[in-house]
Amino acid sequence: MMGPRPSVAEPVEPGVSPLTAQDAARAVETELGRILDEGLRKARETDPLFARDITERVTSLVRRGGKRLRTAFAWCGWQAAHGSGDTTPVLRTGAALELLQACALIHDDLMDGSPRRRGAPSVHIDLARMHESAGMSGSPETFAASAAVLCGDLALAWADDLLTETALGSPYGPQLQREWQAMRREMVAGQYRDIHAQATDASGVAEALTIATLKSALYTVERPLALGASLAGADATVLDSLRSAGRCAGLAFQLRDDLLGAFGDPALTGKPADDDLRTRKLTYLLAVGIELAEASGDQEAADLLSPRTPSVSNNAVHRMRAALERLGAQSVVESKIAALAATSLRHFHRTGAEPAIQREFAALVARASGIAPQCTGREEAA
């Protein structure tokens, strides 16, 4: 799909400080812009209608941003493994991760029926509105679901093409490709566990953690760290430490997202704050709440939080929030996030990364988890 591109950043020469993770996150915007422009140009050559209705929606979602955490973590992995020289491969890997994230968001919003993403209507909602305004025949919802699947597929194809081209141009391409392939399997497995849990009314803490790990933690932090490190030719010891650090930080990120999904401000998060509660999606927060309600004999709260209870009114959602706070579920999740963040830093310290890189990683973990753990570099690994 996309041929080689000139470097977004100049190669890092010996003795010159490399870019920071924040710099890399900014630099990947330029790389993404080039990739999206090229993808849109080729789509218009293929078919103008496809370009307008499908490709432009994908590019719009990607351009609306996001945290770009995956790019930043890939950069930290590359630095932890003493990456040097041309920065283009790691930035293009970051861009591939952002395109993969777009695919995941489009498909996830469709499966969950989420109405908003990144401060705008979700792709399937926007497509349904287009169907209605154009006076098209048939069901707007059916049309929008089918078209949204294609939007996600396009983002995935772009991501795969970009990663493959990067791997082919790297001496460490086979390892990079293996990490990418494993990440895609994990994402699909996690998404299926998620919808399976809803279909079977699952409510256990262990199942909630399995879903959070597979669906989010691995591809948000663990695999991006490993992808970046692979481009630097990291050995097995460094990769193992990075994977452990990433799994803990990624899980902390997802648990924070669970809290924001129940208690966050939509004006700040860009998405509704009641979808998970209204549909009783199996999150760690909800599973802990149910466990605490049953342990304390609070049958009213247990029934209110139970996945077997049908979708509920706004008043019931408010009561669910109050029950989670009263039971102490919110505090339990906060404590779990703090422990995971601290453990993540201890694992990262074992990579032997330079102190400046450890500080960068700590800042990223704080940003992802909402927790600012201490990074002394002296703790025992958990």
Rank of each mutant, 00 (worst) to 15 (best):
R92E: 12
R116F: 14
P48H: 13
G138M: 06
L268G: 08
A80T: 09
T59Q: 03
W158K: 09
D194R: 00
A356Q: 14
M1C: 11
V123Y: 11
L176R: 01
G377M: 08
D201N: 14
A199C: 09
R243S: 01
R321N: 03
Q191V: 01
I125K: 15
H82V: 11
P310D: 02
Q330G: 10
R247N: 04
S244Y: 10
R367N: 08
G297N: 05
S114R: 09
R57S: 07
G264C: 08
G190W: 05
Q175D: 13
E379A: 15
E291N: 11
A202G: 11
L36I: 01
L163F: 12
R178F: 09
V12T: 14
Q374V: 15
L61V: 00
E31D: 08
T351E: 00
G119P: 04
A267N: 12
E380W: 10
P89I: 08
S344T: 06
S170R: 06
C248D: 14
K67M: 01
L218V: 15
V288Q: 11
T164P: 11
E354C: 09
I125Y: 12
A245F: 04
D108M: 00
G228N: 02
C76S: 15
W180H: 08
R367K: 13
H131M: 05
T200Y: 03
I106A: 00
R41N: 08
W75L: 02
A9N: 08
L285E: 02
H131I: 02
W75R: 03
R178H: 11
E334V: 03
I125E: 10
H82L: 14
H82Q: 14
A43D: 07
A302H: 00
H196S: 13
G233N: 05
G3H: 07
M187I: 14
G228L: 00
A167D: 04
V333T: 13
D53T: 12
L227W: 10
S313I: 02
A95Q: 00
S84D: 11
Q374C: 12
R41W: 04
L227P: 02
M111V: 15
R70Y: 02
I290A: 05
V58Q: 08
D257Q: 02
R92T: 10
T30K: 13
T213K: 13
P4D: 13
F50E: 05
V149H: 11
Q22I: 13
D274S: 08
A80E: 04
E38M: 12
C375N: 15
G352K: 01
D298V: 07
R57A: 07
E98D: 01
A199P: 02
K215F: 13
M136P: 10
A234G: 04
A295I: 01
P121W: 04
D109H: 02
G169C: 06
A293D: 03
L100G: 12
D258W: 04
D194E: 01
A27Q: 06
G233P: 04
A234Q: 03
R44Q: 09
A167F: 04
G190S: 04
R319E: 15
S369V: 01
A323C: 06
L127K: 02
G119M: 06
E379V: 07
T142S: 14
F348M: 02
H124K: 06
A236D: 13
L105D: 09
I337Y: 05
E179A: 10
D276I: 01
Q22C: 09
V149E: 11
V317M: 05
P272T: 02
T93V: 12
T20N: 03
F263I: 06
T237S: 14
L282C: 00
L150I: 13
M111D: 07
